[in-house]
Design a protein around this nucleic acid. Structure first.
Lengths: 228, 228
DNA sequence: AGTCGAATATTCGACATCGAGTATTCGCCG
DNA sequence: CGGCGAATACTCGATGTCGAATATTCGACT
């Protein structure tokens, strides 16, 4: 059978750390913290220990010794196995070369935003924009500081990436807000009307009928509705 | 106590659907499919049924009737409760107004890419770029088709959003690849040297020492290492 | 010598996730 | 009219997630 791997990217981080040198779990978490990898990989005690166990079961890492230093609790030191090294490489290859759809909460919220009235959505997106700009300022400051300390860019590409994505989000929200305020976005009138009717306590079925009558051109795509 | 909610955004989708009108779970999944929300919300049978149960336990939705149509298996129809309506609004408000850090696999991979030699990373990012461009073409075609069918833009904002993010990713990878090929990216020499030494079978501890000696200026930030 | 908080190091269990499996029925085609 | 594939509708359990709780030690300061 092919060597399987855990789903959690934290397991990849563990493999990479053990590829550098043997370590015990707590040291992994502090190393990741020191290198600021917490910002790009979700590290979490519970997950760390179960991910290590899961890597053990699959034979990708092995316990080499248990040390007792002073009277601290016992620490188990792990090392990567040969299979583990291969899995690490394969995993990195896949993640770097092959884009995979990932779902964000904001995307979900956008797709469900129709359940709030348009004016409120405009208001909320305005707030988001202010928050995003604030975060952006903060991120750039951190960035600048890291550079001034002499941290090579190589160690910050993942941060550059998230900054790039954030900028794209800012531009998107700005653009969307503009179109919403303009009321030029296709479907806007229908959206507002639905919420007016709901506010006035019109029943769901009746709303559907009214909307269909009032906005025939915006619903041409929905012919399948006639089946019911 | 404050009304809690499940963590899975699919639960929000369920609330929104039931806010529109009562439904049974399978109908939820097909409605989401029809509206192409699968692309922006991870829908998954297992999760759907457990999310519905979880919403029930919290009193955000309630079972109104169980219908048997023909000799199909029994279907339980659910409706949203008043509390559920409030939770839905609060949840949407939060997601729309407040950006929250989300971790992507690619970000994790970027931050761990140092475990592969630079030449390979360049090669892999080249592949990624080709894949991204291909996907982009496909997405734009879907988009164009939707518009030609008369689907109002309002129903596609979430798609516009992901397209914007994808474009940002393409630009980022292009830029990064350029800097890598140039070898202008700070830390590049060190990175290559580490992999040369590993390939030649030099021991981890020795590698660290050699690197520290050969690249003193790129490691000025790492003074904490002297503690060990 | 005492204590307080930060760091070290891990466990636990409630909860969530998800794909594969099961069972049924409808509709179409020959 | 019979059979087969697509659609309907849901269940199950192995696995994964994660924060809170636990327990200890170190160092700084009183």
């Amino acid at each position: 059978m092919a060597a399987t791997r855990p789903a959690n990217p934290l397991a990849l981080a563990v493999l990479v750390l053990l590829w550098e040198r043997p370590m015990h779990p707590y040291e992994m978490s502090s190393t990741l913290r020191e290198r600021r990898k917490e910002d790009s990989i979700k590290v979490n005690y519970g997950s760390l220990y179960s991910v290590v166990e899961s890597l053990m079961k699959r034979g990708l890492i092995e316990a080499t010794e248990t040390v007792r230093e002073g009277r601290r609790p016992e620490r188990t030191v792990y090392a990567i196995t040969e299979t583990g090294g291969q899995v690490m490489v394969d995993w990195l290859v896949e993640l770097l070369s092959t884009p995979k759809k990932e779902f964000t909460q904001f995307e979900a919220a956008l797709s469900l935003a129709g359940a709030l009235p348009p004016e409120q959505v405009i208001e909320l997106l305005g707030q988001r924009l202010r928050n995003l700009r604030f975060q952006q300022k903060a991120a750039e400051a951190v960035f600048e500081e890291a550079r001034s300390v002499g941290l090579p860019r190589l160690f910050m590409i993942e941060t550059e990436f998230t900054v790039a994505l954030q900028n794209a989000e800012i531009a998107f929200v700005e653009h969307l807000l503009h179109d919403l305020r303009d009321e030029t976005l296709g479907g806007f009138g229908m959206w507002r009307r639905i919420h007016e009717l709901r506010r006035d306590g019109v029943a769901p079925g009746e709303i559907e009928a009214k909307i269909a009558a009032e906005f025939p051109d915006e619903l041409v795509f929905a012919q399948h509705d006639e089946n019911h």
